[in-house]
Design a protein around this nucleic acid. Sequence first.
RNA 1: GCGCGGGUGGUGGAAUUGGUAGACACGAGGGACUUAAAAUCCCUUGCCUAAACAGCGUGCGGGUUCGAUUCCCGCCCCGCGCACCA
Length: 957
Amino acid sequence: MKRYNPKEIEPKWQQKWSEDKTYEASDDPSGKPKKYILEFFPYPSGAAMHVGHVRNYTIGDAMSRHARMMGYDVLHPMGWDAFGLPAENYAIKTGISPKQAIAENTGRFKQQLTQMGFGYDWSREFASSDPEYYRWTQWFFLLLHKRGLAYQKESLQWWCPVDKTVLANEQVENGKCWRCGSEVEKKSLKQWFFKITEYAERLEKDLDDVDWSDSIKAMQRNWIGRSKGAEVVFAMDGSDEKITVFTTRADTLFGATFLVLAPEHPLLKTITAPEHRAQVENYLQKTRNKSDIERQETNREKTGVFTGAYAINPVNGEKLPIWTSDYVLVGYGTGAIMAVPAHDERDWAFAQAFKLPVVPVIEPETGTPQENPETRLSIVAIVRNPRTNEYLSINWGKLGGNLFIGGGREANEDIVETAKREIAEETGYRNLKLVAQTDRIHHHYFAHSKNVARYIEAYGLLFDLEDETRDEQRLEPDEQGKFTVEWLPASAAEAVITDELHTTCYRLLVKGECYHGEGIMMHSGSYDGLRSSEAREKIVADLEAKHLGKERVNYKMRDWLISRQRYWGAPIPMIHCAKDGVVPVPEDQLPVLLPDMQSYEPSGDGRSPLARVPEFVNTTCPICGGPAERETDTMDGFACSSWYPMRFADPRNNDRPFDAVKVQRWLPVDYYIGGAEHAVMHLLYIRMWTKVMQDEGLVDFGEPFTGLRNQGMILAPDGRKMSKSWGNVIAPDDLIEQGYGADAIRVMELFIGPWNQSANWSVEGMGGSFRFLQRVWALSQDYLTKNEPANPADDIAIKQVMHRTIKKVSTDMEAMGFNTAIAAVMEAVNELYRLKVTVPFGAAPEAWRWAIESLLLLLAPFVPHITEELWMQLGHTDSIHLAKWPVYEEQYLTSDRMTIVIQINGKVRSQIEVSSSATEEEVTAQAKEDKKAVVYLTNQTPKKTIYVPGKLVNFVL
RNA sequence: GCGCGGGUGGUGGAAUUGGUAGACACGAGGGACUUAAAAUCCCUUGCCUAAACAGCGUGCGGGUUCGAUUCCCGCCCCGCGCACCA
C-alpha cells in the first residue's frame, strides 16, 4: 500500500496541469454560463506570502474549482500590482532597481502560488508596471482628462524637512515622517486630482445593487458621507458681503447666536474689523502651524477669536457676532457655520468657552408618537444629595423598575410646587433647593398595563437635598407597598433607570448635555409648535422663496489626489508648453516610458526624481512643435489597479485597453475576494473608473464587482498579526517542506472557522487536517488493494451516507460554508470507516467505488492534488477538476424510521423511534406510552399536545 | 460619540423558517497493536454529581411562546472602521 506523501504527488500534478492548460479560460462562447472569480491582486513585496495571505487564494480557488465542476466557464486569473511606494522603497533600501526587484518578487510569489496548487489561468498574467499595461493606464488618464475629470490644483502637501521630500498621506504616521521620524510640515504644491466627487451620488446609490457585505457598504457610505441639508445666506451688518453657511438643521435657525468661519475662509480677510485684525492674524498663524493631526484631535479645548463683524439672521434680523475657529473645516460645506449652542454639542462647547448666549428653540420629544393618545401633564423630579452624590429613586420592581420621582400636574399648578409635593408624598423629603429645570418635554408611550396610548407634557427638575429631614410618606391607597425608596450612586442611576423620559431629564439636568434630537419648535415665531422635521422643510422653502437659502446635499468625500513625486509609477502623460499650456500626450505616443535611472531617491525639491532626467523631461509640444517639458509626477498606484479586472479579459490587446466583446463575456466580476483593508480606497476608486468607462460607452455596466467577499484574517497562534518583527510568521513553504503538503494547508485555511471570520493559526489543527487527508488516502488504498470478492451485502447504508453528504456539501458550497462542508466530508469518512467493517469492499464493489469517487469529487475544490492522484489511481484518465459535481438522489435521503423527541412542558424528556409513515395520532399514542414519558405524565391528561411532524411531540400539563 | 461585526465546553467552532444545544476538529483521558516508542485504529470527554433517566447551562436582566443560541426590549463586554463633516 502506498503511503500518502504530498511531497511526491503535489509537484507532479502541478506540472501536469500546467502542461495540459487545465485552468485556462477560453474566450470563445461555449453556451455555458460564466463565472469570473478574482482575488485582490497581490503586491509583490520583498517578504514572501504567509499562511494568512494564502487563505484568500484558497477561498477563490475552491470557489472557481467548484464553479467549473458545476458547469460554468470560469475565469480565474492572477497578476501583479507592481507599481507603488513599497516596491520603490524596497529598491532604495536594497540598491537593486524596482524593475529587477519586481521581477524577482513576482517570480517568488508565483512559485508560492503554484506550489499551493491554485488553478490560475497564467496565460493572462501581467504586472501593472509592464509598459504594455501602463500604456493603457495612461490612456485612461487622458480619457479622464478629456472628460474634465482630471485637473491640476495648488494644494497643501506633506513635506519632510529632514529628508527634503514630499510624502504621501500614507507615509505620515501620527504627524511624523515614517522614515526619519521628524515632524512633517505642509507645503503648497500643484497636484493632479481626479474628480471622484462628481460621482459621489452614484457611488452612494449604486451600493444598493451590489452583493457586498454590509460592513463594507457601511464604510463606503460613511466615507462618501452624504448629508442632506441647506445653504443659508446671511447678510452682513454694515457691509455688502454675504456669508453662506451649510446646515442640516435649518429648523434651529432661530437658535443661532453666532457664526463661525474656518480659519482658511477667504472672507475672513475682508470682513475682519480693523481693531480685531491683529488678533485674528495671530490666530490664523497659530492654526497654520498646527498639524492636521492636532487639529483633528477630538475633545480638544475650543479655540477661536471674534472678528469684530456681525451678520444678520435672515429669519429674525438678530445681529450675530462672527467668529473664526479651527473647529470649522474649510473643506466641508461652505467652510462657515451658523452656531446653535442650544442644540449642537460643538457649538455648545464653544459658547461655554467664550460666554456666548444660548437660545433653545427645540423642546425635546421622546418615545414614538401614538394614535389617539390620552394627554397628561406631569413632572419628573431628580433629587440629588450633594453630600453623597446619590440620587433619589423609586423602585417599582416588576411594575416598571427604577424611576426618579414622577407625578401628574393640574393645568394651573406651579411646576416647582408640584414637584416638591410629589417628592414629599412619595419619599417624605421636604427640604429641597431647585437647581435646574428643563423646557417642556414631549413624551409618547403606550401603557401596556392599562392598554392605553399616552402623550405626556413633562418638565424635568433637579433639586439638591438641603438636609435629611424626612416626614412620613403620604401614599395613595393604590400605591401602598408597591415601591421602595432608594438612593442610587450616579453610575447606578444611569444604568438602572431606563425610561426614556427619565433618562432624558437626567442627561439634560445632571449631565448638562445639550439636546440635539428632534422635537417641537419654540421661540421660532410662526413655526412654534411644529415638529422640527416639518419646520426644517418649511424654513428652507421660505428662505428659498426669498433667495436666502436652498436645499443642498453635501459629501464628506474629497477629490482623489493622484500625483506622486515618486519614480516607480506610471508617468502622467501630460506636457507643459510655455505657449500652449498643459497639453495631453497624443494617444499614438503612448506609453510615456519610465526611464531607467541610477538612483531613485526623491530629489528634495518637491519634484519627482524624473525631473533629474533631461532626456525624459525635454520634449516638444504636440501642438506648436516648440520645446516643452513633460510632467514629471507619476500616478498613484491605485490608478493602476482601477481597471485591471477588465484587462484580464483581454490582456494582450495592443490596440485598445480591452475588447468590448471580451469584457462583456467575462465581466462584471462575480466574486471579488480579499481583505477588508481596501474598503474605502481601491474599492471606491475602481467603482469610479468603471462608471467613467460606462459613461464613455466602453463597458455596459456601472459596477465592476457584483459580489464582494471579505475573508477574515489569519493571525499568528499568539493572536497577533503575523509579522517579521514579532517573529511569528508561518510560511506555507515551511509547512510543505515539513511534509504536511499544500492540500493539508488548504484544509486548515478553510476548516479553521468561517471564511469571513478571523482566526488564530493552530499548529495542532494542522496535524488534524493532515490526518484527515491521510484517512481519505488510506480508505482509497484499502479499496484498491483489499477488494477481494465476498458474499454480496446490502449497500444501502453506503449510499445513504454519501447521498446525504453530497446534499450537505452542495448546499454548503453555495453558501460558502467551507468549514461545515469539510466537516460533513469528515463525518462521511468516519462513517465509511465503520461501514467497511460490516460491508467489506468486495461485498459491494460498485457502491464502494461510487462512494469513494463521490468523496473525491466533493473534496476536489479543497484539495486538488490528493483527489487528482486518487482519481487517476482509480483508473480515470481525465482530470477530476474537469469532472462533474456529484448529484444526490432524493430516495436515499429518507429512511423508513424516524426519531421523535418527546417533550413535557417544552423540556426534552425522551425520544422514540417510529415508522416514517406514522400519523400524528399514532406518534402521540406511542409517545404517551413511552416509559420515560409516563413518569412525567403521571396519569394526567395533557392540556395541550403540540406535534411537529417528523420532529417532536410536546405535552403541556 | 456614530457605524458595522461579535460574545456558545479547556480551545477553534456547529445548529434551514423558533423545535434533541455543543456537529466536525483540536486538546485531554482510557484502551488495542508494539519488546518499546512513533504512527495507526477504537472508546470517553459541557458543568454539577459517587452516580443518574435529577439539576444547571449559549455575555447579563426582562419579555413573547407549549418551546428561545434563534424573535422583542434594556444593559455589559470585545473587535474593526470613521470621527470637531455643522
